[in-house]
Simulated scan of single mutants.
Amino acid sequence: MKRLRPLLLLGMSLNAQAQVEEQLQYQYYDVTIATGESLRQALSQASTIRQNGQVYHAYTRWDVTWNYWWQEARDGRCRLTLSRTRLSAQVTLPRLGGGDARQRQRFAQYLQALREHELGHYRIGQAAAADIDAALLATAESPSCSELQRHANQRANAVLQRHVERERDYDRDTGHGRSQGAWLAE
């Protein structure tokens, strides 16, 4: 779930300005392969990522928040003057301990494909943050600051929803990374 926290302040400059900040962190869970166990079995057993009854070997969670400031004219009209949008993301990946040379080599290939798939999710989050910031700055002047706030948040939430849907399409279109090589048959 994406958290949304608009913050509104008065009295900023007359020229609208934007700022997008990004933060990406990696988190790992450990995987140990027991004798006779397949790489897929070991990953599925060790994975901490479970959703809707399914086990995943990697996951990217991103969150976009935005703040904006406005200026109110003497007649009550209000326009946005500054926005700051933040993207924070966390990619969770497996880290292998043990296994034979063939398993370690296969894991390295698999991990590379997993990472690339997860970075695709992150890029969708980056696009969401940039598009939200642009939408905020394009918010038209309003007859009142409360109306400006409502319009700005509606615009930002609509952009966010489009990118959440884009992320679902990305997983569907890639088979959750399968078409990108993030798949273990054994």
Rank of each mutant, 00 (worst) to 15 (best):
M1E: 12
M1L: 12
L4T: 15
L7A: 15
L9K: 13
G11P: 00
G11C: 02
M12A: 08
L14P: 03
Q17C: 13
Q23A: 11
Q25V: 14
Y28N: 06
D30R: 15
D30P: 02
I33P: 00
G36S: 11
G36L: 14
E37H: 12
R40Y: 03
A42M: 12
S44A: 13
T48R: 08
Q51R: 14
Q51T: 11
N52S: 04
H57L: 11
T60N: 13
T60W: 05
R61Y: 09
W62F: 12
D63Y: 03
V64M: 02
V64N: 03
A73E: 13
R74Y: 02
R77S: 13
R77A: 10
L80E: 01
L80W: 01
L80H: 00
L82M: 04
R84L: 06
T85K: 04
V91T: 03
T92M: 04
L93F: 01
L93T: 10
P94S: 09
P94T: 12
R95D: 02
L96F: 03
G97I: 11
G98N: 09
R102G: 08
R102H: 08
Q103M: 08
R104G: 00
R104A: 12
R104P: 00
R106A: 11
F107V: 09
A108T: 10
Q109C: 02
Q112Y: 01
E116I: 01
E116F: 05
H117W: 09
H117I: 06
H117C: 06
G120I: 09
H121R: 04
Y122K: 10
Y122N: 08
R123M: 12
R123K: 14
G125S: 06
A128N: 14
D133H: 02
A134D: 05
A135E: 03
L136W: 01
A138G: 03
T139N: 01
A140G: 04
E141D: 11
S144G: 12
S146I: 15
L148Q: 11
Q149N: 14
Q149A: 14
N153K: 06
N153Q: 15
Q154N: 10
A156G: 01
N157Q: 15
A158G: 07
V159R: 08
H163E: 06
V164H: 05
R166Y: 04
E167Y: 06
E167S: 10
E167R: 11
R168Y: 09
D169V: 10
Y170T: 07
D171H: 08
R172H: 10
H176K: 02
G177Y: 02
G177A: 08
G181E: 05
A182T: 07
A182Y: 04
L184R: 08
A185D: 06
A185E: 07
E186L: 12
